[in-house]
């Protein structure tokens, strides 16, 4: 006890010598953290406050109306039904195209590519994430839509009996499928990065056990890598989904919009929330801006749920791995 006595009194002595610098610094650091929480709360609060104006004046049901008659001071009637459908449709197309390819790329980089150049190849995929979305939009509208025309013609000729691909094909190529393809390219690096991370963490024992049983490389991947990596892939796909849902410029520049719910991917039509806001904002009058903020609030809520879900899936995997 004689030895623990001094040490028991020592900590208060050190604590007593609290310096001004320490206190200021610690509080600045904590304050920054709290400021971030405040900003996030502020985003939600200001959007709710500023949208309440238009929402209370709205004469139509906000969630079931397809049209957007908000640029007036009298009896605005607008709703997000068509916009929400378009947003989910575009993101779904992107996800369906991007997820399998991203898994393939991640497998390629981790297990197939020669060790020495694997890092460089991974860097090339990351480069896709560095390109600004407006440049993707420009590339889509100035180059890709013309290149895709022939492919679309073929698609509707041979697969036109599927309602999604029914003709006549839009002659401008500014369709939902074009927007979805560009979105797919944009979310590819996100899903790839997450999948690559989990594939790298697969315990070597699992893999070697599979190989020792005489498995081929594919059988090893199917039995050891994919089951282990599934939560990471799902989390990555959900992060990609969140990005695709909120992506504005590529869709605003490529899609030729109309506010109807249309399942025909090869014809012009549909519109996403984000692109609608960007296109309508400069011309908004009356309740226009407030109504667009309401639409933004819906988008914010959707992406918040998706992102929190993704983080939850990823975090849960971390706990037991």
């Amino acid at each position: 006890m004689t030895t623990t006595d001094p040490s028991a009194t020592a900590p208060p002595q050190i604590r007593g010598k609290r310096r001004v610098g320490d206190v200021v610094f610690a509080n600045t650091a904590r304050g920054s953290g709290i400021l971030i929480l405040a900003i996030l709360a502020g985003v939600a609060a200001f959007l709710i406050i500023q949208s309440s104006d238009a929402l209370s004046a709205n004469t139509a049901n906000f969630f079931t109306t397809e049209s957007w008659e908000a640029n007036t001071r009298e009896n605005p009637a607008f709703g997000v039904a068509a916009l929400a459908f378009g947003t989910v449709l575009a993101a779904a197309i992107a996800l369906v195209i991007a997820t399998p390819i991203a898994i393939g790329i991640a497998l390629f980089i981790v297990y197939y590519a020669p060790r020495r150049i694997a890092a460089v190849l991974g860097y090339l995929v990351d480069l896709l994430a560095a390109i600004p979305s407006v440049v993707y939009g420009l590339w889509g509208i100035g180059y890709l839509v013309f290149e895709l025309q022939g492919f679309y013609d073929g698609l509707t000729t041979y697969l036109g009996w599927i309602p999604l691909f029914a003709g006549p094909v839009s002659t401008t190529g500014r369709t939902m499928l074009s927007a979805g393809i560009v979105l797919a390219v944009m979310i590819l690096p996100i899903i790839t990065a997450m999948s690559r991370d989990v594939f790298k963490q697969v315990p070597q024992g699992h893999r070697e056990a599979a190989l020792a049983m005489g498995a081929t490389r594919w059988e090893m991947i199917r039995m050891a890598v994919l089951p282990f990596g599934r939560p990471g892939v799902i989390g990555g796909a959900m992060l990609g989904l969140g990005r695709a849902l909120g992506e504005t410029m590529a869709v605003a520049m490529i899609l030729s919009p109309s506010l109807v719910i249309s399942p025909f991917l090869l014809q012009s039509g549909n519109q996403t929330i984000a692109a609608h806001i960007a296109l309508q904002y400069p011309e908004a009058t009356g309740y226009g801006v407030s109504a667009l903020i309401a639409a933004g609030l819906v988008l914010f809520a959707i992406t918040l749920v998706v992102n929190m879900g993704a983080r939850f899936v990823v975090a849960r995997r971390k706990e037991f791995s």
């Binding site: 996030l40 502020g42 406050i49 500023q50 992102n307 993704a310 983080r311």
Partner: peptide, 28 residues
């Protein structure tokens, strides 16, 4: 823990929503 989680959530805010936030703030 809250900051870590919400910083993660914040990375997923659509850029257009960040713009609308400032529009709403500036309007007030």
């Amino acid at each position: 823990k809250a900051i870590t989680f919400f910083v993660d959530v914040m990375t997923g805010i659509p850029s257009i929503v960040a713009g609308l936030f400032v529009v709403a703030l500036w309007m007030m």
